[in-house]
Write a protein that binds this DNA or RNA. Structure first.
Length: 609
RNA sequence: UGGGGAUUGGUGUAACGGUAGCACGAGUGACUCUGACUCACUUAGUCUAGGUUCGAAUCCUAGAUCCCCAACCA
């Protein structure tokens, strides 16, 4: 897959390069004289700690940290923790873990910009607010939520507030009281005084602060007024010197508001003179604040998945899934648990690109990106998911043969290992059909197949129970095919060929293991599109648990790393990629199927499947 | 009805007035001790209608369709 070395620039990169060329943001020279000619590029990922990160956030993380990396800039992780009613420390911890796992190096390496919290800027934001009130650009409004809503107006009818022209001193007094916690939730808000008739509703005197008496994970009980996102967000970026504030499309309408806030703070600062009638003041000696450039991009929306935190939270709370890290979830922690390598997520994100077009991405592309990485990196091993017993009639009762098994055909350095073979083996139920259809290359009465790296066997009989179900089969092996190669004739060519090669496990050596097979959580490309309720499209069989057999080598090498939260990854030949789940315990192995192998036989046998 | 965005094969994405290209998917074939991987070939596209131009996906005009906006959420 194109890890995209020669891909053309996406529109974000084009903007950054144009800015760099024009020196729009200056260079890093002030901080580091040795980098006086490196243009400043400073990005950030600004999550609210109110849920777990999902694959959509992964796109933002990769975009932002990728830009910093590519242009020698800095990347910040900043929590947008402005609403204590919804935010929790647990989410802060999980987000930090997930961002680091994905390679968003906000605290290590050359691009580390640091870890920040919006709540650490509350004092500064309050000072800005006082300044705006004094400038006549903000006021305290004592309308209730319902009243504000009722007075909102329509696209052509302006909003109203009876408090917008109250004396500045009055607002200042109430502002101080809000800060001192003297008023209950909902009693009043601070509003920006912009334009009640604006066709852009974001400019109809938006609320800057509301009163929330609630414990905050970072600031404790210090504050009882909290800034709204719109007021806070642009300031956070400004304070951190963010050059390119990358966000999603729905914030396009908010950009004029962010511009207004910063312009209003800067008005009269830095000695540029005050508007007529405004007396000289404390802020005229203050420097202007940084004005980042906001750029909007379209969210990532994979098919067959839901992305809204609300809907994901609902599934967690109602136990539709086992938790935020249920391997079927689109969260980063679920993908890590399921065995997706972070590199695959990164490749996927660059592969689908970034634009302003709202589109759906075939979730199959994510699965392909996962296969791509895993194919190159995982050891091959054998496991039988749904065992069918095969007795090799001409193999001596107690004889055991040790056969060589290539660990990874894609990676010669991985070497070989021994796999035991004996008289009774298990093969996959799907690899035997009593009355096979055309083009079925596997085992059937009278046909011959190769057992991977072992012997050719021919099916000689079928055992059934009283109900007629196949309970086992009998076969004979060809001693001349040891290692899986047909004997070579005088002409140097193999004396026979078999079309099929199947995997197997020696019954005597088989180690039992639980294997969890996942399918998509939803059966509809766009869950809920049909009925309006995404749960109507839940896939009832998205989880299947089987008791499988694995080879001894795998049992010995199946490890789970409690520190990185990653289980060892393997390919089970012909079945897919699997990893060790955190539920594994000594004596009880649990594997997740990360993703299947592509299966063109399945497509042929069951068209449309 | 106001404002802000978007529209290129089945899907995603390039082309920035000069040959509509790439990737995924799909199809066919080759290879193969994984029906995997790999390789080759094929497939199919500029929202519509006008206009400017030697030349338009790109510029202009009009229209169509889709998304976002009237939380004290982010």
């Amino acid at each position: 897959m194109p890890a995209s070395e020669e891909r053309s620039l996406n529109f974000l990169e084009q903007i950054v390069e144009a800015d760099n060329a024009s020196k729009k943001w200056g260079t890093w020279g002030a901080r580091d004289p040795s980098r006086a000619d490196v243009p400043q590029v400073h990005t950030r990922f600004p999550p609210e700690p109110n849920g777990y990160l999902h694959v959509g956030h992964a796109k933002s993380i990769c975009l932002n940290s990728g830009l910093a990396k590519k242009y020698g800039g800095k990347f910040n992780l900043r929590f947008d923790d402005t609403n204590p009613a919804k935010e929790e420390q647990e989410y802060v911890d999980s987000i930090i873990r997930d961002v680091k796992w994905l390679g968003g190096d906000f605290d290590t390496g050359p691009n580390a910009g640091g870890l920040y919290f919006a709540s650490n800027y509350f004092e500064q934001m309050y000072a800005f607010t006082e300044e705006l009130v004094k400038k006549g650009k903000a006021y305290v409004c004592q309308l209730s939520g319902e009243e504000v809503s009722a007075r909102r107006g329509t696209p052509t009818v302006p909003a109203t507030s009876p408090f917008r022209d109250r004396p500045i001193e009055e607002s200042l007094k109430l502002l101080a009281e809000m800060r001192d916690g003297k008023h209950p939730n909902g009693a009043m808000t601070v509003r920006a005084k912009i334009d009640l008739a604006s066709p852009n509703f974001n400019l109809r005197d938006p609320v800057m602060y509301r009163i929330i008496h609630e414990h905050h994970h970072n600031t404790g009980d210090k504050w009882s007024m909290y800034p709204m996102y719109d007021w806070a967000h642009g300031l956070e970026d400004s304070l951190e010197g963010i050059t390119h504030s990358i966000c999603t499309l729905e914030f396009e309408n908010h950009r004029p508001l962010y511009d207004w806030f910063i312009d209003s703070i800067n008005e009269g600062r830095g000695g540029t003179g005050l508007p007529p009638g405004v007396p000289s003041s404390s802020w005229s000696s203050l420097p202007k604040i940084h004005h980042p450039q906001q750029i909007e991009f379209a969210k990532l929306r994979p098919t067959y998945t839901v992305m809204s935190k609300r809907n994901l939270l609902k599934m967690v709370e109602e136990k539709t899934v086992s938790g935020w890290d249920d391997p079927r979830m689109p969260t980063i922690s679920a993908m890590r648990r399921r065995g997706y390598p972070p590199e695959a997520l990164r490749n996927f994100v660059t592969d689908v690109g970034v634009t302003k077009v709202e589109s759906y991405i075939d979730v199959g592309r994510l699965e392909n990106a996962v296969r791509d990485v895993l194919n190159k990196t995982t050891p091959r091993t054998m496991a039988v998911l749904k065992p069918l017993k095969v007795t090799i009639e001409n193999w001596p009762e107690d004889k055991i043969d040790e056969l060589d098994f290539v660990i990874n055909p894609e990676d010669a350095a991985a070497g070989k290992r021994k796999v035991p073979f004996s008289r009774v083996i298990y093969i996959e139920q799907d690899d035997f059909i009593e009355n096979p259809p055309k083009k079925f290359f596997r085992l059937a009465p009278g046909t011959e197949v190769r057992l991977r790296w072992a012997y050719f066997i021919t099916c000689t009989g079928v055992e059934k129970d009283a109900a007629g179900n196949v309970t086992g089969i009998r076969a004979t092996y060809d001693p001349a095919t040891r290692g899986g190669d047909a004997p070579v004739g005088p002409d140097g060519k193999p004396t026979k060929k078999v079309k099929g090669t199947i995997h197997w496990i020696s019954a005597k050596h088989a180690v039992p293991a639980e294997v969890r097979l996942f399918d998509r959580l939803f059966t509809a490309e766009i869950p809920g599109d049909r009925t309006g309720n995404y749960l109507d499209d839940l896939n009832p069989s998205s989880l299947e648990v089987v008791q499988a057999f694995v080879e001894p080598w795998l049992a010995e090498n199946a490890r789970y790393n409690n520190e990185t939260l990653e289980g060892e990854r393997f390919q089970f030949e012909r079945l897919g990629y699997f990893n060790v789940d955190k539920d594994s315990k000594p004596g009880k192995l649990v594997f997740n199927r990360t993703v299947t192998l592509k299966d063109s036989w399945m497509k042929e046998a069951k068209p449309g499947a």
